[in-house]
Write a protein that binds this DNA or RNA. Structure first.
Lengths: 123, 123
DNA sequence: CTAAAACCTGACGTTGACGTCAGAGGCAAG
DNA sequence: CTTGCCTCTGACGTCAACGTCAGGTTTTAG
């Protein structure tokens, strides 16, 4: 498949795919005229990259961990990095849970007429 | 308290506090000579701001939601924004949980000698 | 009183993951 | 053949939350 189709299927921009290649995260075959070609498996690969970006990993870190996550190839360094990122994500989840609960409490307080710390017009 | 003490207590930089004030997130009294002064409650305020930043909210959004979270003052717009941000955080948590589980699986696979998809030197 | 430390206001620099534009070429349909 | 869409490289633009530096004032310790 060509780059436009991959972008549409994986839900990212064409620019993003070229950027991933530039960062060494995504390989491509080239036609004799220089156009990029991808195997179907590239869709999963791109979505994995997106998932790791969404978790706050940088291009550099993803580059280090991709062989590990994608094909199980690992070194002591990548294992340590992997564990470190896992812990970071874990702390991030903990913080987000606390924030969500705090927002929930505010929402509940605003919806509760018996405890309006704010001015309500429901009379 | 002055800005340096607040920064040290709340765990942020002096520059960040000035930035928060610039964004309208943090008020300060001024001495006759122009130095900023804060009440003790500013510590909690700053930590709340930090918590919201860490949850991915922008300065603009925090500005909109701070009266709501901090003092329960709310409008229909801020309530909608609040619910939207809560849902976004919820989806973010879901995604992070999936990512964490994926990393855990990779870590477990690497530590498991009975299923080494990678090359191991443990002979 | 003096020197260090803290504070002030601008204002430019940083970083990462792309967006966007320019200019040139490639590819299937009619 | 040509029209219109897709693709290419290269390079500058963006945006947010600060970092950092310059040049000057204020507060504090001794």
């Amino acid at each position: 498949m060509r780059i436009g189709e991959l972008a549409g299927t994986a839900g990212v921009s064409v620019r993003a795919l070229r950027y991933y290649e530039e960062q060494g995260l995504l390989a491509s075959q080239r036609t004799p005229r220089g156009q990029r070609t991808y195997p179907p498996a590239a869709v999963d690969r791109v979505q994995l990259i997106q998932q790791l970006y969404a978790a706050g990993l940088s291009s550099h870190t993803i580059l280090e961990l991709l062989p590990c996550v994608d094909r199980g190839v690992s070194t002591p360094e990548s294992q340590a990095r992997l564990a470190a990122e896992r812990d970071r994500i874990d702390r991030q989840i903990t913080g987000l849970l606390a924030t969500r609960d705090r927002l929930d409490a505010v929402i509940a307080a605003a919806a509760d007429p018996t405890h309006p710390s704010c001015a309500r017009m429901t009379s």
